[in-house]
């Protein structure tokens, strides 16, 4: 499988403090990968480095385009980034104008812009909000808009930087399912998060702590030890918590990500 994002030997020193040292990461095309990280372990810094917001001399490529001054526009259009900063400044008052602006910047003709805006609003089920003022959107509506904005130019990889922090389970599941569908259409998702329950749909999970990858595995491998995750400061989701505790009493044999399946084994 092709690697869509590649970070080789990333080193970042600021004021003599080493933040990343010889950091390497390969993300497979059309996959969903989660990097789970407690607070202050390098989540947002990593996102900013991949986005090119913080310059580095290290080798970062997306879809074979290396991040440097010469390629920056080509590079950046391959990426979509969503953060949890719902109070960020929007440029326009209305939802549809905000959505149209990145495409206008990229030189899309008006008819194509209108078509794409409608298409993405329809996909995330907010066509009724296109004429609404952004200031009047709810938290969930704003987060939908931010995700749609980051995908409007059809990037190759979407980076979520704790993007679901303020959403409830229902809203989170809606967006995760929608995003998962898009991986069938050539989108790769890198979910950098502190919220473990946003990672169930991932093919691979890595743990980032103190600017280092300390574990890399499948969801079952990563989530099989409550104490280890708690020690790192994670909030353990109900299903993982229950699975590990029932496993401790030898009532089940592994972590389950579906309650129906877990109880099927428990009550068999």
């Amino acid at each position: 499988m092709k690697s869509i994002l590649s970070i080789k030997n990333l080193t970042l020193k600021l004021d003599d403090k080493v933040f990343f040292a010889d950091f390497n990461l390969e993300i497979e095309e059309n996959s969903i990968t989660s990097i789970i990280a407690p607070n202050r372990s390098g989540k947002s810094l990593l996102t900013k480095l991949i986005a090119g917001i913080i310059p580095t001399n290290s080798n970062i490529t997306v879809d074979d385009i290396i991040l440097n001054r010469k390629n920056v526009l080509d590079y950046i259009t391959k990426i979509g980034i969503v953060t949890n900063d719902l109070n960020q400044e929007f440029l326009f008052k209305k939802v549809k104008d905000e959505l149209a602006f990145p495409l206008l910047n990229l030189g899309y003709p008006e008819h194509k812009i209108n078509k794409r805006v409608l298409e993405i609003a329809n996909y995330f089920e907010f066509t009724n909000l296109l004429n609404k003022q952004i200031i009047k959107l709810t938290t969930f509506e704003k987060q939908k808009l931010l995700i749609a904005l980051s995908l409007i130019h059809k990037p190759k990889i979407l980076i979520l930087d704790d993007a679901f922090l303020e959403l409830n389970n229902e809203e989170q599941s809606f967006l995760l399912e929608k995003l998962k569908e898009l991986t069938k259409e050539n989108l790769t998702i890198l979910n950098i998060t502190s919220k473990l329950d946003t990672t169930y749909l991932s093919n691979r999970i890595l743990i980032l702590n103190n600017f280092k990858i300390i574990k890399d595995g499948t969801p079952i491998e990563i989530f099989s030890d409550n104490d280890y995750l708690k020690e790192l400061g994670f909030n353990i989701p109900f299903l993982i918590d229950v699975s590990n505790k029932l496993k401790f009493y030898n009532l089940i044999d592994k972590v389950y990500f579906d309650l129906q399946e877990l109880e099927g084994v428990l009550w068999k």
Partner: peptide
């Protein structure tokens, strides 16, 4: 939800407000 699914397997559990109580109860 845990109790509701348990019912589909003919397992009637009391109401719990804490995960640890649920685990003990299930055990």
């Amino acid at each position: 939800l845990f109790n509701k699914i348990a019912l589909t397997y003919d397992q009637k559990l009391p109401d719990y407000n804490e995960v640890n109580d649920l685990i003990k109860g299930v055990y």
